[in-house]
Write a protein that binds this DNA or RNA. Structure first.
Length: 561
RNA sequence: UGGGGCGUGGCCAAGUGGUUAAGGCAACGGGUUUUGAUCCCGUCACUCGGAGGUUCGAAUCCUCCCGCCCCAGCCA
């Protein structure tokens, strides 16, 4: 927390503020909060906010709460609340105390609204929504006062009470702060504090007919909870003066301060709840947790670990610039964690039969393979080896002119190493009527398991395989980026027009090694030479496993021309 | 044309007047390798949006200019 810490990373501007506050004894405890609105699922951008808020609390020995900003029942639901709670847990964060809700404070907020009316700093306005907009003025023109601005407090109070009890229809009245209709900051032009919404709320039911606006709720909630540093994204910077005005004009128990940082943008995807919801509602994806979605539930279903998400977030800057991070940076952390921790296995995506002519019929040899090339602790697995195998179609060629450098796989008449097993030679092929290779006739080189082949036999490379008799059939889903454009909604484009038509490729009849039969959706595997995979949590069944490709292996071998 | 915020290599980003402008991602060379993976080594900004100015000395201070983002919901 101070210079004695081993952290060599420079402090970001918020850490600096906190450090200064602590040193000058402005505060004794750091209290932060993650305040999502339960109107959708959390996405990778929220992960950054979560990591920032929980991270700061942890770093400075403070606390961080989880609080739902549920002030708009039109868009919110318990389904979203539950999904968000699960996502925060999955990321590995534990909030202080019970989950909080803005709706816990509706009573207090209402009392404070009454206070404001009583001191002449709020009034009931009966302008229609259209009139309200007109009266507000524009970016360059000042607004003008509402004709209701100076009505007696007693009158506003009576009306507010009627609004609360449901006697007023939606759109007829609002409670507005009396600030300054000529303010350069539009948020200060008598902002709406309460509006009528005669819809049931997912927590308070039909108890309320009015709901506080974001501005009237957020800062006061922070104050009630003793939040010391209220961290939000850049677009709220314009609201800060209003946040402070309310805190200063209300008998709140604390004076939290708001700080804004740049939200995370990622290329080749969208991080806006509105757009994500559209993808879901228009069935462009398979739901909020479709593996192509940048939602936390989508990433999780795809097989991305929470560690990867956290490390990615920690690699991001907390600053006031709003840039767009390259998806490759997320990919890096996904691979980094999986490479370290995912057990290896083999799965043939596009099977091509291989018949061994010098293998005794019916004979099965059980080979052993390490689950990880450089982590013995992950143990070994058994690999049955029989006379009929499958290798990937892409790993065989009958073009003998291919250079060894260009094609490090099996070529007709030549040798290749089967990973963790024998070296084999392709002696011939069987083709169908159309001339396509449907089977390879091959032979093993004896005594080559874990041993180099005799002089003169030079395998071109190492390929993965599976024993036909012992493999299990499975479906494999290969995912690609959801959008084919780096900036799907830039330059006046409609992001829906940029959806990548090849973002999902489904492979049937894939052959996985036996050990994969016991996979669960929580397990992550590396299918050697292919990438990282996990069992799909929705579509898999005992007799038909479905694997999602989390991400492919890095592929550096650009063909040279 | 009002207000707020921001501009450092392809991307993200340290840097808050003083030797050769951190680091990560990407890219590109090379080494190791029974995964074309991992790992390892190396290369990659005479320059900090632009132009002036202050100073012995500036990405860091001043002036003007240019560009980008956000704000006119009874959304958050």
């Amino acid at each position: 927390m101070d210079d004695s810490s081993p952290t060599d990373k420079p402090l970001n501007f918020i850490q600096q503020v906190i450090k200064d506050d602590l040193q000058s004894a402005v505060l004794t405890e750091v209290v932060t909060r993650f305040p999502p609105e339960p109107n959708g699922y959390l996405h990778i951008g929220h992960a950054k906010a979560i990591c920032v808020n929980f991270g700061l609390a942890e770093e400075f020995d403070g606390i961080c709460r989880l609080r739902f900003d549920d002030t708009n029942p039109d868009k919110e639901s318990d389904e979203f609340v539950q999904a968000i709670i699960e996502d925060v847990r999955w990321l590995g964060f534990q909030w202080q105390g019970e989950v909080r809700y803005a709706s816990d404070y509706f009573g207090q907020l209402y009392d404070w609204a009454v206070v404001l009316v009583n001191v002449g700093k709020a009034y009931i306005c009966e302008l229609t929504p259209e009139q309200t907009r007109e009266y507000r003025g524009s970016l360059t023109a000042v607004g003008k006062n509402s004709p209701y601005r100076d009505r007696p407090a007693s009158e506003s109070l009576a009306l507010l009470e009627q609004m609360r009890t449901g006697a007023i229809a939606e759109g007829l009245m609002t409670l507005r702060a009396k600030i300054d209709m000529a303010a350069a900051n539009i948020n200060l032009r008598d902002p709406v504090l309460y509006r009528v919404k005669r819809v049931p709320h997912h927590r308070t039911g039909s108890e309320w007919s009015i709901y506080p606006s974001y501005d009237f709720a957020h800062g006061q909630e922070d104050a009630i909870e003793g939040v010391s540093h209220s961290i939000c994204t850049l677009e709220f910077a314009d609201h800060r003066p209003l946040y402070e005005w309310l805190i200063d004009n209300l008998p709140v128990p604390a004076k939290p301060k708001q700080y804004e940082f740049g939200r995370l943008n990622l290329n080749y995807t969208v991080t806006s709840k509105r757009k994500l919801r559209q993808l879901v509602e228009e069935n462009i994806v398979d739901g909020w947790d479709d593996p192509r979605m940048p939602t936390l539930s989508g990433l999780r279903r795809r097989g991305v670990s929470s560690t990867a998400v956290r490390e990615f977030c920690d690699s991001l800057a907390v600053a006031k610039t709003d840039g767009t991070v390259d998806m490759a940076q997320l990919d890096h952390f996904i691979r980094h964690d999986l490479n370290d921790n995912a057990p290896r296995a083999m799965c043939v995506l596009n099977p091509l039969k291989v018949t061994l002519t010098n293998w005794a019929p019916g004979q099965v040899e059980t080979l052993t393979a390490a689950c990880h090339p450089n982590r013995e602790a992950l143990g070994n697995r058994e690999l049955p080896f029989g006379g009929t195998l499958y290798i990937d179609r892409a790993d065989f060629s009958d073009d003998t002119t291919l250079s060894r450098k260009k094609f490090k796989r099996l070529v007709l008449g030549q040798w290749v190493r089967l990973r963790s097993a024998y070296v084999i030679k392709a002696d011939g092929v069987v083709t169908d009527e159309s001339g396509e290779t449907i089977e390879i006739i091959a032979s093993i080189v004896p005594d080559t398991v874990g041993e180099n082949p005799p002089e003169g036999i030079k395998p071109r490379g190492v390929i993965h395989w599976v024993s036909a008799e012992h493999s299990i059939d499975c479906e494999v889903r290969l995912y690609d980026r959801l959008f084919s454009e780096a900036d799907p909604d830039g330059g006046g484009k409609n992001f829906l027009d940029c959806v990548n038509p090849q973002s999902l490729e489904v492979l049937q009849g894939c052959k996985a090694e036996q050990s994969l039969a016991s996979a669960t959706p929580e397990d992550h595997y590396q299918f050697e030479r292919e990438g990282y995979f996990c069992l799909d949590s929705h579509s898999s069944s005992k007799d038909k496993p479905v694997f999602n490709r989390t991400i492919g292996l890095r592929d550096n071998w650009q063909q040279k021309k």
